[in-house]
Amino acid sequence: MHEKNGIRPQAAVNTYSGAEFSGPGHDCGRRELQRVPAVPSPGSLQSQGAGTSMELRLTPLAHRICLSMGHVLTFIYLVGWLCARFLPIPGADWPAAKLATWLLENKTGYQLGCMLMLIAGGLLAPWGSALAIWTRKTEARFPVIYVSQITSLAASTALFVIIPIFWALAAFRATEIPVDITQMLYDAGWYLFLWVGPPFYIWVATLGLGIVLNPPEHQLFPRWIGFYCLASVLCWSMGLMQVFFRSGPTSYSGMLPTWIPLVEFFVWMEILTFYGFRAIRLQEAQCRAEVGEGLGVYAPHWDDPLVDSITDTPRSRN
């Protein structure tokens, strides 16, 4: 095995389903030095300063829990959408009094719907992280796209949960306060819904670029997923146009800014979730191929010994 600068490359490249890949936690940034089609030994990994062997194994359960939040988010959000009776969406051209009356008549279901959408919004972070982590390793030690992705994901999550707060506020004192204030809060919710796009665009575009621009032999996603992410960003960009219209197909209740991007978003989310689970399976196969203490796939088991909190070692069973 060749060495460079005294560091022995350690990328463990394996063949699975005809595609080459390596595990995200295994190369520790030295992949770019040389691609080695070999499985490293635990000793060699530790001697290269890769940290303890505990850090090198995969915990698929955690990944799967985070990733499954995609399905949960889709389900809860869409149920919330239906509970809020956004089918059809009360338009920007509705008189304020009509809107306030509509909110009052549907108050309970509407507020329940807002609450569900709020809960679903919070699930964006674990789901997005479960995808982002696979693009982390391809950038090795200088993961600028990954960091952009994570920061944009955090901003998107924060904004995503604010949207239903404004919608819920609109209904909170509907008809008890001047109706134009109710309408303004409702409009603010829609403005947020369609105008918080840019952090979402950056997040998804960087996810796509993380797949397309980086070495394909180390990707756990097919390259077309990267291109699909970029195309999705173009689709969602139509949401920004709602600012110019209060009625018609380009207003916030119309097809172009809301309905088409909304449907596309959840289809995209389901496709990414499917391929995210596939990535975990590929990584599991990689980790299973590795042998040694602390390596491979880790799954907590009821028979595992408890760990002593002082010595940080497994307690012996008496």
């Binding site: 390259r223 195309a231 173009l234 689709c235 018609g248 596309e264």
Partner: peptide, 26 residues
């Protein structure tokens, strides 16, 4: 080109097709 670019094209064309349907509906 590559399959990924065709995925982009198909995705973009699908979205535009929905726009065209919206146009015809309106």
């Amino acid at each position: 080109g590559e399959v990924g670019m065709w995925a982009f094209i198909i995705s973009d064309l699908s979205v535009f097709s929905l726009y065209f349907i919206t146009f015809l509906f309106e």
